[in-house]
Every structure is written in structure tokens, then in C-alpha cells.
């Protein structure tokens, strides 16, 4: 079943185009969204969360046309959304906040709702601090709280905008575990700058750059795009677009290797860097 169907989606903020003809289909599974700052990821996710509407194009979510108000409500009943930045109303405890969102998700049977709130707080490991005021929670705990509210009511579409920012390594692994399990039978869209997250649990990756889809395939294919263009050396080569010294001491270089270079296996990160670099070079060329 197709959970997301976007066709020719455009969005502008003033004169600035943010999304430019984005078309995308997605079904059950985790779709990772990568892109530099300002690529349009957050706007795309806000459209998927029905929080903002596109200027043009068609958005179909969970079989409903998101352009129709009545259909939007149906979509929201089956949607979980983690925004990029989340503020909290003052005075709430962790439990009260998730309970508040649960009511907004039309869970009006009090006992069942409270059971569900306790369940999602347990999933993100916040049971112990459920009664603590939000302002007394750490940044990572607040992020987990936002993830908890998104999990309420067993949503069929999860839209997660940089959900792992601020999580400690253990919590990130737990998050991967949770999302992977959920994605068995539903669609999860994750935007992140953490390429290792994409490599770890996203079978499909989409790269956005300047509002356009530049890549849509598997993480292996993205890594493969850098095959033969990653090498190590002791000194920086002129053909290297980017280079950094690894923990082993060698200089990891990405770009056009010199003859006889010691090629190494390309990672998803290498592929992404080269892709964005090429897109940026293309843009500068077009501007000239």
C-alpha cells in the first residue's frame, strides 16, 4: 500500500522557492531524508504532517487527498509527527503534556488514554520522570518526550524531523530499534543530518537539495556513487574536495583520486558529500 504520494509539489516562502516539483511515493518502511540546511526537508515534512499546505501539486497521504479539510482530519487521526524544534506549554509535567496531546488525538476515554500515555512514555524510557515538570527535563529527555507524543495511538504514518538530535548513543540505538519495529507495517519518514542513522536503519534514502529530489534509492547505491573516489594518503591531494584525518591517522579524502591512490570503501557519507558537492557546482555553473 502506498502511504505517501506526492506529485509536483511546490512551495515558496515569499519569492524564495523552497520545494520545486517534488514527486515521491512511499509505502511501509523507513524513508530517510538527507539534505543540507535549507534544502527544504523541514518544509516537506511539514507538508507530510499536514501542518502546512503546498502552493501547487498533489499530496495524498494514507489514501486521502490532503488538500481537503475533512480528509486532513482523517490523515491526522493516523499520523504521528515530531517537529524539528518543539516548545512546550509552561507548567506541564511530562505525563500531562503527552496526555494533552492524547486528547488532541481524540483519545477521550480517560483510563485507556492514561494507559496509552504510560505505554509511550515507557517506550522512550521516560516512565521514571513522568511526573517531573518539563522545564526540569534535560534536552535529550525533552526530545524523547516529543517522540513519545508522536507514537500515541499507533499511527500509520510517522513523520520525524531530526528526531535523534540531543539523544545519547544508547537512546539513539533504542530509537532505531523502536522505529525499525514500527516500520514493519507502516511508513516512517525520518529527516536527519546523521548519515550513520540513515545507513543503520533506512532501506531507502532521498536526498533533497535546493528543493529538488537529487537522489532516491538505497543507502548502498548512495555509497556506491562514491566508489573509486575515496582514498587515503598521508598528505592532502589536489583532487580532494574534502579531506579529514581519521582516528587511524591517515587522511581520508573524497574527490578525484590521483593515479595509484590507495582507494578505500566509500561510505554513505562520502556518496552524500559528493552528490551535494556536484549539485552545488551545477548550481554555480548555471548561475554563471
Amino acid at each position: 500500500m502506498t502511504s505517501i504520494r506526492l506529485a509536483g509539489v511546490n512551495k515558496r516562502y515569499g519569492r524564495q522557492p523552497v520545494l520545486d516539483g517534488v514527486s515521491l511515493d512511499a509505502g511501509p518502511g523507513v524513508l530517510g531524508l538527507l539534505g543540507p540546511n535549507g534544502a527544504g526537508k523541514t518544509t516537506l515534512l511539514r507538508i507530510l504532517a499536514t501542518v502546512t499546505a503546498p502552493d501547487a501539486g498533489h499530496v495524498e497521504l494514507l489514501g486521502h487527498d490532503a488538500g481537503r479539510p475533512a480528509a486532513r482530519i482523517e490523515i491526522r487521526r493516523r499520523l504521528g509527527y515530531v517537529p524539528q524544534e518543539t516548545g512546550f506549554p509552561s507548567g506541564f509535567t511530562a505525563f500531562e503534556y503527552v496526555d494533552y496531546v492524547a486528547i488532541l488525538k481524540e483519545m477521550t476515554a480517560r483510563r485507556a488514554r492514561h494507559d496509552e500515555v504510560r505505554r509511550v512514555l515507557a517506550v522512550v524510557g521516560l516512565t521514571r520522570v513522568a511526573g517531573r515538570r518539563i522545564r526540569r527535563l534535560s534536552g535529550g529527555m525533552k526530545r524523547r518526550l516529543v517522540i513519545a507524543q508522536a507514537l500515541l495511538g499507533d499511527p500509520q504514518l510517522l513523520v520525524l524531523d531530526e528526531p535523534t538530535v540531543g539523544l545519547d548513543p544508547e537512546q539513539r540505538l533504542r530509537f532505531r530499534d523502536t522505529v525499525s519495529a514500527l516500520a514493519e507495517d507502516r511508513c516512517v519518514v525520518v529527516s536527519t543530518h546523521q548519515t550513520e542513522d540513515i545507513a543503520a536503519f533506512c532501506p531507502r534514502v532521498v536526498v533533497l537539495h535546493e528543493g529538488r529530489v537529487r537522489f532516491d534509492s538505497t543507502p548502498q547505491d548512495l555509497a556506491g556513487a562514491a566508489a573509486g573516489r575515496v582514498w587515503t594518503a598521508d598528505r592532502r591531494d589536489p583532487g580532494a574536495r574534502l579531506a579529514w584525518r581519521t582516528s587511524a591517522g591517515a587522511l581520508h579524502q573524497v574527490g578525484t583520486p590521483p593515479p595509484g591512490a590507495t582507494l578505500v570503501e566509500a561510505s554513505l557519507e562520502d556518496g552524500y558529500l559528493l552528490l551535494v558537492d556536484a549539485a552545488e557546482a551545477g548550481r554555480q555553473e548555471a548561475a554563471r
Binding site: R46, A49, T50, V51, I73, R76, R77, L79, Y81, V82, P83, E85, T86, G87, F88, P89, S90, G91, V101, I103, L104, K105, E106, V146, Q149, A150, V159
Partner: peptide
């Protein structure tokens, strides 16, 4: 106003209970 600030309402706007009901 506490549930109407942009950063707060983003998470709330993705729910079926709309702004009028709030």
C-alpha cells in the same frame, strides 16, 4: 498563548483537534 506559539503548536497542529476546537 502557551499552546499558540509557533514552536509549541507545530506538534499540536498535526492532530485532528483543530485550532477552532482548541
Amino acid at each position: 498563548a502557551a499552546t499558540y506559539r509557533r514552536r509549541v503548536r507545530d506538534a499540536l497542529d498535526g492532530t485532528p483537534v483543530d485550532d477552532r476546537q482548541r
